Amino acid sequence: MKLYDSTESPLNVLDAVGAIDDGPIKGYVHSVESFGSVDGPGIRFVVFLQGCRMRCQYCHNPDTWNIGVGDEMTADQILDDAIRYKAFWGEQGGMTCSGGESLVQLDFLLDLFTKAKGRGISTCLDTSGQPFTRDEPWFSKFEQLMKVTDVSLVDIKHINSAEHKKLTGFGNENILDMIQYMSANNCDMWIRHVLVPQRTDDDHYLAELGEYIKTLNNVQKVEVLPYHTLGVKKYHELGITYPLEGIEPPTAARVKNAENLLHTSDYNDWKTWRPRP
C-alpha cells in the first residue's frame, strides 16, 4: 500500500488536496454514515474525509491515510444527500465531518460548511488538529471555518508533546495552539481522549490533561474513549504491521479512573446545547 509522505508541510497538503480551480471545489470522501449517534450532538450525517498525516499507533482506519484518493464529491452533492435525513436530526443533530483528518482538506471543508449553514444544517468538526498553523493563507481560512462550525470534537491524543510524538509521529504544540484559539474565540468544543493501556493511561499525564482542560472556555463535554482492536483486521488486509499487537482494551476500572482524573462529570452543557443561529 502506497502511503502519503507525512513529512510534507500542511501548506503543501493544502495545495494538493481541495485546491480551488476554475470549477467547483471537490473533496476526497472515504465514506458517509447516514445515522451517526456518537459523532457529536444528536443524530448526525457523518462525512469521513480521506487523508491524514498522523500515524497514531491505535488508528483503526488506516485506509483513510492516503491523501488525494477516494470518491471525488462537491459540497452540493454531499448536502443534497444529507438533507434527505434532516427530519431525524431534531434540535441538536446535523452533519459532522470526520476522517482521516478533516482539516487536511481545508478549502473543501470551508466550502462544505459554508453551504451547509446556508441550508440550515448544523455543522460539527471532528479533528485532531494536526494540520493547524497560523501561517497564511491557511490560518485565515481556518478562522472562516470556525465562523461556520457549530461545535468541534477535538481529540487530544496526549498532553505531553514528546509522548505525543511517540504515539503519532508529531508533537502537539500546534494542536494545543489550535485549542487555545478555539477557547479564546468561544468556539464550542467536546474534548476527547482515547485511553490506551501502556500509551495514554498514565495517571500523571491524565491529571495534567484534566487540569489543562479546566483552563479552556466553552468545553461542552469531555469523553474518555476506550481503545479497541476492531481495526486490526484492516492492518492485516493492507499488509501493515499493527503497532499495538498484544495490547488489550482498558478495563472498566481504568476507564473510570481516567474519567475521574479528567473530571468528565463536570462538563454537562452538551445536554442542553443547541447550534448557534
Rank of each mutant, 00 (worst) to 15 (best):
S122L: 00
E223K: 07
S183M: 08
F108Q: 14
S34A: 11
P41D: 10
I191A: 12
F108S: 14
A75M: 03
M1P: 12
S37V: 01
V194L: 08
D22F: 11
R276F: 01
G70P: 10
F139Y: 15
E173Y: 04
D155Q: 12
Y242K: 04
M189K: 07
S31I: 05
V32D: 10
Y181W: 15
C187V: 10
T272H: 08
M54R: 07
H158R: 12
L11R: 11
G100S: 08
Y235A: 13
T264G: 02
L195C: 07
V219W: 00
L3C: 03
L244M: 08
N186I: 07
T64I: 02
K115M: 03
Q92G: 06
I247S: 12
H204P: 00
Q92R: 13
G68M: 05
P41M: 07
I179R: 10
E223D: 08
W138L: 09
F132R: 09
Q57T: 05
V47G: 06
S140M: 05
D39I: 02
G239P: 01
W65V: 04
V104N: 13
P41V: 02
H30M: 06
D203Y: 01
G94A: 12
G210E: 12
T215R: 07
E143V: 11
D177E: 14
F132A: 08
T215S: 14
S6C: 08
H60G: 09
S9V: 06
I83K: 11
E163L: 05
M1V: 07
V13C: 09
E143S: 14
N218V: 02
G40K: 00
K86V: 04
L244G: 11
G42C: 04
E33D: 14
L216D: 04
T74Q: 14
D15R: 14
N186M: 06
C56W: 01
P10G: 13
I247N: 12
Q50M: 13
T123M: 03
I121D: 13
M95R: 13
V104K: 07
D76P: 10
G118Q: 15
T127H: 03
D15Y: 13
K234G: 11
D81C: 01
R84W: 02
K165W: 00
N217E: 06
W65F: 14
Y4G: 09
L167G: 02
N260Y: 02
K86T: 14
V13I: 05
G171E: 12
L145T: 09
P62S: 11
N172Y: 03
A75G: 13
A19N: 11
P249Q: 12
D22S: 06
H228K: 10
L3K: 15
L225R: 13
D80L: 06
T215L: 03
L79E: 15
D188L: 08
H236E: 12
K147Y: 04
I156C: 15
S140E: 03
L262N: 15
S265P: 00
W65I: 06
E136W: 00
K221W: 09
D22G: 14
Y212G: 07
Q50V: 07
L11K: 09
P249E: 06
L209Q: 12
